[in-house]
Amino acid sequence: MKNIVLSIFLLSSIFCFAQSPQIEKVNINLLIDSAANKMLKKPLIHSTSIAIVYHGKEYIGHYGELQKGKNNCPNNETIYEIGSLSKTFAGTLAAKAVCENKLNVDDEIQKYLTEDYPNLKYGSQPILVKHLLSHTSGLPNMLPLEANTILQDFTNYETPAKINLLYNNYGQKDFLRDLHKVKIDTVPGYKYSYSSTGSELIAFILEKVYKTKYEKLLTEYLSTSMAMQNTKISLSDLEAKKLAVGYHSDNSIITYAMPQLPWGASGNMKSTIPDMVKYIKFQLKNNKIVAKSQKSIVKFDHEFSIGYFWNIATDDRKLGTYYLHHGGVPRSQCYIFIIPKYDLGAFIITNQSGAETSKVMEDALNEIFERIITEEKKG
């Protein structure tokens, strides 16, 4: 993590909600306040929600306005689009299937496909399940292939509308048809190439393994294992009214929600901040499913590995080995960090999505992490 000089101060009038202090070494609520209010001074950022779990205690803060001038601060009932964080849930379900001996990551994916896909290999080297989980399959980021061209110009005002039009009525049969058009140009298992196509295929495989629709499999597991009642792919009409509006790039007009993808495992999940706290707590537990999901599948260098869709920062000199993922859709971006060395986890989200959004969130979390580390070292 970058070495950031910390200057703690509280800007009043912007802070909307935070849990009452439950701290020992450092006031986490004040750290969240400081980081969030600095965020709101950045261009285009006018709301954020931040959750920290530290030594089992939870701290939540909501700040700003979802719509500028509307005085509608986000709260614990606000439902957010969490984008590609959805992949970590698919990875957790895959780890569960492995632990239950229902799935072998060394299986060829062809084993689970109902049609023959001779194109899903490089020479004699087939794509395996573990290649999907580690973004080393060689599959394109998105299907249909046209989506990748559109997303190359992500900040263009027309991009959200083009993506929505492309995915209008694009279902699972269309995805499996377009999978025949893919050409693998490298040996699977070695080259990192981010692939939402791969995470959609994991959902398909999990359906085959459990003989249950992916969304049902997901929501039942979250509900029973983590008490996450408000995290799902599809929303009811009542829930949809609580979905946060958001803004794309520097466009001041509210933009489209993320369109429905064939299975939704790569970027369609929605959640609340209290539910994301529960997810952090689950990921900090030392149980066999978490351990499996966080186990490195491919180590690219001494600093970076991939687990079951988790990005793994290996042996960071300050944070130790930690797990993270970024999520982004045309109108929101977020991060999750799981840092076992300090029994620490964090989730941050803002309802704006542009070229600089991720850095703004990284800076906010870095400030919080730096202070916690400093206090830990003091003992």
Rank of each mutant, 00 (worst) to 15 (best):
M1V: 04
F15W: 06
E24S: 14
N27Y: 01
N29H: 02
S34H: 10
N37P: 00
K38S: 10
K38T: 09
K42N: 14
I45C: 13
N76H: 09
Y80Q: 12
Y80L: 15
T88V: 15
A90M: 12
E108Y: 04
E108V: 07
K121M: 13
S124I: 12
P126C: 11
I127Y: 06
L133V: 11
A147V: 00
N148I: 13
T155N: 14
A161D: 09
Y170L: 03
L179T: 04
I184Y: 02
D185F: 10
V187N: 03
P188Q: 12
G189D: 05
K191T: 14
E207H: 07
Y214I: 07
Y221L: 05
L222A: 09
T224L: 12
T224W: 01
M226G: 06
I233T: 11
H248I: 08
I253F: 08
M258K: 09
N268S: 12
M276S: 11
K295M: 09
S296V: 08
T314D: 10
Y323L: 05
Q333G: 06
P340V: 09
N351V: 07
S353V: 02
G354K: 01
E356A: 12
E356P: 00
K359Y: 01
M361A: 05
A364H: 05
N366P: 00
R371H: 02
